[in-house]
């Protein structure tokens, strides 16, 4: 699968995006407050590298514990897939656990995203990128 972006957990998204701008990243699109997922998202790009800054809205946010343990850190790769349901089925049969089933994501024009975990890889995100 082709890599779409790297997810970067940050505690304070406003402060982090200023620092990413200083090292060559530019904002892509607007800041999204994804209340469905309890996260705030800002996409940024440097050349061909796309990153997704993800900050928790509150302590119930799925990335709150990641930040508490590791502070600001890259924490997932997101991969494009033509069919998210087929790819999930394939990964499930290869010992991936579904963290978050497929649902539309505000930051990606409502396209379906899902999160999975593998004990020897960690967290990955799938994004349905139909041609």
């Amino acid at each position: 699968m082709k890599i779409h972006h790297i997810g970067y957990a940050v505690r304070d998204i406003e402060k982090s995006l200023v620092e990413f701008e200083l090292i060559g990243f530019k904002k892509v699109g607007e800041l999204y407050n994804d209340t469905e997922r309890n996260v705030i998202i800002q996409l940024m790009k440097n050349d061909t590298w796309l990153i997704e800054l993800v900050a928790p809205c509150n302590e119930n946010s799925p990335i709150f514990s990641i930040i508490e343990k590791n502070n600001n850190t890259p924490y997932h790769f997101c991969f494009c897939t033509d069919s998210i349901s087929q790819q999930i089925d394939k990964l499930r049969s290869n010992n991936y656990v579904i963290i978050e089933p497929a649902k539309p994501a505000m930051a990606f024009d409502g396209r379906l995203v899902a999160f999975l975990y593998h004990k020897y890889i960690g967290i990955i995100e799938l994004l349905e990128c139909k041609q």
């Binding site: 514990s65 990641i66 343990k69 656990v97 963290i99 004990k119």
Partner: peptide, 10 residues
């Protein structure tokens, strides 16, 4: 926590 829960499930 929620992250440890996923590793336990795996």
């Amino acid at each position: 926590d929620s992250l440890k829960h996923i590793t336990i499930i795996a």
